[in-house]
Every structure is written in structure tokens, then in C-alpha cells.
Amino acid sequence: MDEILVLAEHRRGQLRDITFEMMNFAKALASGNQMEVTVLLLGHGIDEMAGHLENSCDNLLMMDSPELADYTPDPYLLALEKTINERRSFLTVMGHTAAGMDLAPALAARLSIPLMSDCLDATLNNGILEVERQIYGGKINAKLGMKPFAQYFVTQRTGCFPTSLVHDKSAGKFPLKPPAWQEFRRNFVEYVEAELSGVDITAADILVSVGRGIGKPESIAMVQEFADAIGAPLSCSRPVADKGWLPKDRQVGTSGKTVRPKVYIALGISGAFQHQAGMKNAETIIAVNKDARAPIFNVAQYGIVGDLFQVVPILKEKFSK
């Protein structure tokens, strides 16, 4: 039977949510197409993690080796190349994450298997893969029908499938022998935690968040006055942190912080997927943006289509004593 091979992703001994999301994606795709779901767990000291996976897939492949403890491309590429070639997995799935983005393209090139990256969903049409992804920073959706291939490779965007697993299977567990390791040209040294600026935005009840629409760093002062009037700290989207206009630990999003304040006020933030991932679970989201079609309005409860430079000063006045 054809199989969908899911590469489990873990860090510091913990399986990451994307692993469960991919398993749910694979399960849905497999059931409509008479395929099996096989999870590949590469790591070191992986028995506990295996326990979380073995009741939700058809096959669980386990390769345990010290070289695989933390993700690094050299051994992971060799391990995946061996596994995919031997099993002729029809579809390989990994997360479009910091690890998957590093691993997938080189693997696809090595195996000459076409790679569709950052996919929201995928279906099979007569054995041919069709994927859904976004282009132009999430402003346009694209459905891509692929050409027929013997094998496919997909990396999946986080947050598109449920993270809870149904324990309705009993996987055959297969320990895999690691391949002969060659000399590694890149080495993992250590994890590095980010510097702190003294304000923990994840603890705030209200956040006033600025995006690219703020235009220049001098304009932040005006927003700071409003934020002070309501007792909220400032946070931001990626472009503002990249430019150093606010400290990096104020950044909300996939590579920054995930926040769940009572109120999240997004000013001049378009709401690209990576930002939404960090704030969409705020209780109340109010967005101000000049573009009525900005993706932020899909996740906000309240929207103001307008110029933040006109809105913020008047809003501030409503709170002055």
C-alpha cells in the first residue's frame, strides 16, 4: 500500500505541535485514498516520544542515534534519503518550520522529488497531488495541480490542522538501523535564548501593536502616548523589530512571541500569516488598516478601515482624564 511518511519534529525532548497537525493531515488524506500513515521518528532517547505517536498511525519507524538528538541537516538528510528510497514513500511530509525549511529543499534536490512548500492543504486527484498555498505574503491563494510523479514531497504550514490526536490505531513499531554516518560539515552547537528588554508582552492584558504602517520610528512616540493612556505596553510585527524600531522581544508572531491578551489593538499591521499565528487567540482584536482587504481583518473582531495617524490621536483623547 502507498504510504504517507510524516517526519516527527521535536526539540529538547518534546514533540512539537506540527507533528500532530501533520499526522491529522496525513490521516485525512490517507483515508480517502487507501494509503497508510507512517511516522518517522529520528532522535536519541526517543521511547517516550514514541509513546505519544504509536496509537495514531499505521507504522512508527524509530531511528535512535546520538547524532540525531538535535536537528542538524547532515545526519537527517542521510537518514531520510535511506528511508524514503527503501520504502519508496509516495508522499513525504514535514513541517514548514525552522527545521523543515532547512531540511526539505536539500532533501528534495538530493532525491529529485518535487517539493511543494508551505502548504495549507493537499489532496489527491487520480493519484496526482494538488496543493493549496499562498503567494504574495498571503494576499493571494493558489491551488497548484502537479504533474504526475512517482513520489511527492510537501512541507506543511503550522496551524492548519488540529493538534490533538485520536488514538484509534496501533502502529507496527520498527526500529531502523542508522546509515553509515559520513563526516558532518555543519554542527549544532547550542540553543540561544533571546535577550529580554524588561517588558513581558505575554503578561499584558492589553497590547497596542504597531506594524509597517507606522512608517518611521519617530511616529511610534504618538502611539506610545496612547498606549500609556490605557496602561498597555507596545508590541509589534516583524518589520518593526527587524528595523530595530522596537526591541526584538516585542515582536508578536511565529518567530517571536505568542500572546493572548484581553485586547489586542493592531495598528498598521497587514496581518500576514506569521503574525496572525502569534495573536489570533487574543480575546478581542481591534485592527486599524488603510487596506480594507488586509488579512488582519479576517482575524479581528472589530475593524477600522482608515489611517492610524488620524485614529490614534482621537482615541487617546477618549482616555485622557
Binding site: Q134, G138, A142, K143, A292, F297, V299, Q301, Y302, I304
Partner: peptide, 20 residues
């Protein structure tokens, strides 16, 4: 290219915000 066809669309709004 590995892609045979591409169909573009604007993302649906979902429930969307209440625009004030």
C-alpha cells in the same frame, strides 16, 4: 516545472471583522 496548473483566488474573508 513540476506544476501543471495554477489557479489563483483572493482568500475568503471568513467571518471577518465588524467594520466600525
Amino acid at each position: 516545472s513540476s506544476v501543471a496548473s495554477r489557479t489563483l483566488s483572493l482568500p475568503s474573508g471568513g467571518e471577518g471583522a465588524e467594520i466600525l
